[in-house]
Amino acid sequence: MKGLPEKILRWIFIATVLTTIEVLVRFNLVDRIFLTSPSLIAAAAWQSLFAGDLISLSLKTVSAVGMAFVIAAGIGLSAGYVLWRYPLFGRAYDELLGALFASPLILLYPISLVILGRGINAIIAMAFLPGMIPIALNTHQGLRDVNPTYLKAGRGMRLTERQIMRHVLLPAASPLIFGGLKLGLTYILISVIALEFLVEIGGIGTLASKGYFWFNTEELYVGVAGAIFLSIIFVYLLGKAESRLFSS
């Protein structure tokens, strides 16, 4: 069991933080309007789980993330392939996409709302961009960095272009491509939750916003904790998938 003491210490740290908050709240050392105790949040989350709205809100978020991801992956992967196929455009657009990715894309959301209306389409459109760019860039880089000797070996064995793509290029590039998909999905999730919070159109991100405006501290913290929890689960599953796919 390597890394066991680290894991234990990590959980002890988390438990200490939660207990401290619990104690602070229980002994009325902080105003309950500001901060509520982890146990009360958990109880509220439990209730909300049975009342069904926590689940339905999460599902709404997940489905928006899913749709944005499917579009981003489809366009990102094909764009990456095209950039690789036409290296001159690849060089030119790598820089453009990089610059775009470094800019505060999420601040464009009012435009998206104006054009697409206050609904899930606006959210998907806004989450698409930061999701698609890393997928395209990584796909391009992955294909470009394939060792040319592999390609020569493939041609030497008289494989067709299609066979080379399938049996040489894709497997060799897959770790980077997966890295891009992972990054893209993470950005999509962050964007979707952030937009749900900002615009209040359903989803787990809305809960915190509503809780704040109705002075419902428990609901607020359920919303915050739920959003963080959901993103952590995503990151965890992605990490698991990656280590399973590329462990050898």
Partner: peptide
């Protein structure tokens, strides 16, 4: 080894959600 995983997990969450707090 103890704290980096925590940091990486929280880095991938939407910070704006903390804004109401």
């Amino acid at each position: 080894r103890v704290f980096e995983p925590l940091i990486l997990y929280f880095a991938a969450t939407p910070k704006i959600i903390l804004y109401p707090i």
